[in-house]
């Protein structure tokens, strides 16, 4: 039991990078993440990860979502299987430029997430926490493409108790929603963009989206806002490995110790705040070797 992949942390200023030994190849990818100092992480995987387990059965009657790899049927007999380095590691958020968003969309999203979670004396807001990076990478990945969901027609409107019944994937909904929002703001604010409004006008606009009093062209404003809010807060509180919650600012805000796994010594220490700071799956920036 235990780590099949080992993380090593070097010191580096201004960038955050993964050095992946992946299928025997090594790739250094830089992510510019603002002014904070982060480490360089070297992840050494002892052996290539075979195939994603997030798989479905292939069949003659159906094609699978393109990015889902197919694991072949296997037979197990006389003994638990074991192979070195076969761990199904968490998907890595690739550092670097925007993957899904255009530069203009990204600027809007960064402005929005900073109103949904504003910076204050308790800590950074959504933008510096990396919420926009998080959403960008999620939209470029399985979530963005409704991977694994039931997407067969017919699509019919139903009651709210029947759940989402629309063919649009999150990626499509963001693309259309941001366009409709930009058009709306442009028309009602003399060609301005969201990021050019005052903070209080931005808040007013977001409130109106939230309560549905704004009509966007071909986009359900309320549902679009709900998705934006959900994804922003997910980015703020998810493990930093996904690009948000940078330096664990979301966890520090509330006092969640993160990816720790053993509280046996603290269960019965009633009314005593847990003393250790949070850690993420990758550890913590200040574990980096100094100098």
């Amino acid at each position: 039991m235990g780590c099949l992949a080992r993380f090593k942390n070097l010191n580096f200023d201004g960038t955050f990078a993964f050095d992946l030994l992946w299928f025997g190849k090594s790739a250094l990818i830089n992510l510019h993440r603002g002014p904070k100092a982060f480490g360089v992480w070297v992840m050494e995987s002892k052996a290539p990860l075979c195939l994603s387990r997030r798989s479905f059965l292939a069949s003659t009657t159906a094609l699978l979502a393109t990015s889902v790899s197919v694991v072949h049927a296997r037979t197990f007999h006389q003994g638990m299987p074991w192979a070195p380095g076969a761990a199904d590691l968490p998907p890595l958020t690739r550092p670097g430029p925007w993957v899904f968003f255009t530069a203009d969309e990204a600027a809007t999203i960064e402005a929005i997430v900073d109103r949904l979670i504003p910076p204050d004396d308790r800590g950074p807001g959504g933008k510096d926490a990396g919420c926009a990076v998080f959403i960008d990478r999620q939209l470029a990945g399985p979530y963005g493409h409704s991977e694994g969901l039931y997407t067969r027609p017919p699509f019919m409107p139903g009651s709210s108790t029947q759940g989402y019944q629309n063919p649009d994937s999150p990626a499509g909904r963001y693309r259309n929603g941001l366009k409709a929002l930009a058009d709306h703001i442009g028309e009602s604010n003399g060609g301005k963009k969201f990021r050019e409004l005052t903070a209080s006008d931005q808040d007013k606009l977001l409130s109106n989206l939230e309560n549905g009093s704004i009509k966007l062209k071909d986009v359900e404003a309320k549902a679009f806002f709900a998705m934006l809010l959900q994804d922003t807060q997910q980015g703020f509180f998810a493990d930093p490995i996904y690009g948000g919650n940078r330096d664990m600012v979301g966890w520090k805000l509330i006092g969640f110790p993160g990816a720790r796994y053993d509280y046996r010594d603290w269960v019965e220490r009633h009314n005593e705040p847990y003393p250790l700071p949070p850690v993420g799956i990758m550890g913590r920036a200040d574990w980096a070797a100094k100098g």
């Binding site: 387990r53 798989s55 998810a238 720790r260």
Partner: peptide, 19 residues
């Protein structure tokens, strides 16, 4: 698929709420 502790949810990354 086949699933086991060491390969699918070891304590090095089992505590991943998003995933």
């Amino acid at each position: 698929p086949w699933r086991d502790t060491a390969t699918d949810f070891p304590p090095s990354y089992a505590q991943d709420e998003l995933r």
